[in-house]
């Protein structure tokens, strides 16, 4: 994959930071506004997918390798699980919301829920990009076989 035309590349250059920023915003405001870890994670992943489509695999690989995305995915799950387990050690209940709840509609509120959303966001972003890369690689393998 060589990438697309200069128009697409230029627009992608301007748009991709904004998309990531918006994804992060959705993840961090999961407990206040509609959205949360999953939609935000999908947006972050879609930004990397856009980069891959616009610039070709090689450039996108420099930004985020497949192994890195797998590591991010596992880390996301582990963050979520550790938060759930901390509930047992702090208050005796799995998934206990052990942090102070704070005031509604403040960014730092709702206890562990924003932290959980960060875990979910990492997990979803890593997983969806890894799935996309797996599909891309599979297709490239098919194309190589054809000329023989």
């Amino acid at each position: 994959m060589k990438g697309m035309t200069i128009i697409v590349k230029t627009i992608t250059k301007f748009l991709s930071p904004l998309i990531i920023l918006f994804g992060v915003y959705i993840v961090l405001h999961g407990h206040l506004t509609p959205g949360g870890g999953f939609p935000g994670g999908v947006m972050i992943a879609s930004c990397f997918i856009l980069l891959t489509l616009a610039y070709g695999k090689e450039i996108a690989y420099k930004k985020l390798k497949r192994s890195t995305s797998s590591v991010i995915e596992s880390l996301g799950v582990l963050i979520f699980l550790i938060l759930a387990l901390l509930g047992i050690f702090v208050g005796g209940y799995f998934f206990l919301n052990f942090l102070p709840l704070g005031h509604p509609l403040k960014i730092i509120s709702a206890g562990i829920i924003p932290l959980c959303y960060i875990g979910v966001g990492l997990e979803v972003a890593g997983a969806i990009f890894a799935v996309f890369l797996a599909l891309v690689l599979f297709k490239a393998g098919e194309e190589k076989e054809k000329p023989q």
Binding site: S70, S74, V77, L78, L81, I82, A84, L85, F94
Partner: peptide
């Protein structure tokens, strides 16, 4: 929790 956590640590 334990098998789930160990699964992702192994990954």
């Amino acid at each position: 929790a334990v098998p789930l956590g160990v699964a992702f640590i192994l990954a």
